[in-house]
Design a binder for these strands. Structure first.
Lengths: 130, 130
DNA sequence: TATAGGGGTTCCATCTACTGGAAGGTCAAG
DNA sequence: CTTGACCTTCCAGTAGATGGAACCCCTATA
């Protein structure tokens, strides 16, 4: 498979796939003409990466997960630990965003949003530790 | 005020304050010795920036908000629009993260997390469009 | 056979929002 | 006079791509 096909089938842009090769997440073979020659296994890995990145795993998480994925003697506990840590991180992010949201929603709610200059949003943003 | 003091009072690292000058969010005066000389107004802006950034506004949002903040004839509607758009964006991010969370939590829940290699997390991540 | 197009390749620059570190100038205290 | 805490500038690097230039390759068609 050429890069265009794996791009279409994995859902990743060709640029991103080249980048993933660059940082050694994948190591596709090469045809005589210099084109990358992707195997089914490469495609499988790219699909994995596409999914894992969409779920917010960092590249380094992905590298670790890929290594486990390729290691048939892995312990599922190792995988579960990485995923569990990431889950906690997502939970923290959600909590942060919710707190932001509530603060901001309060400011927006109190703003008249008319032609006058008085604006609780600006006032609120200029107060420390709100 | 020197940079150390505004850093302490605004809650922003000195490095970040220099960066903000670099990208022209602030324009502090200079003492004869070359040190930055911050006014109360500068400190006020930095506090504003610190808050706004903590609420997830981008630097360009901040630039626009600062401009409105300095414009005494602004319409609060203009501010409300920027804040409202940002609020929508936060809501989208929260929704995205929640959906990630649920997917990932499902995978983690189904994983035995023991010494055996069978792992629904890895299996689940290798399926497209889950 | 020339050419047009739609692939592919490399490399370099850019983005966001900082952060780290080196090399050096300034200032107040002991 | 030296020490140490400040301050300065500049250069490089982070994550995770993305955009673009310049160029090569392959196939189809006139």
């Amino acid at each position: 498979m050429n890069i265009g096909e794996v791009a279409a089938r994995s859902g990743l842009p060709a640029k991103t796939i080249r980048y993933y090769e660059d940082i050694k997440l994948i190591r596709p073979a090469r045809d005589a003409n210099g084109y990358r020659a992707f195997s089914e296994a490469d495609l499988h890995k790219l699909t994995f990466l596409s999914r894992a990145r969409a779920l917010g795993f960092t590249i380094e998480d992905c590298r670790a997960l890929l290594a486990l994925w390729e290691d048939s003697s892995r312990a599922s506990a190792d995988v579960k630990q990485i995923a569990g840590e990431h889950l906690d991180e997502i939970d923290r992010k959600i909590a942060d965003l919710k707190s932001m949201r509530d603060t901001l929603a309060g400011l927006v709610r109190d703003c008249a949003g008319d032609g006058r200059p008085d604006c609780p949003i600006l006032t609120g943003l200029s107060k420390p530790r709100g």
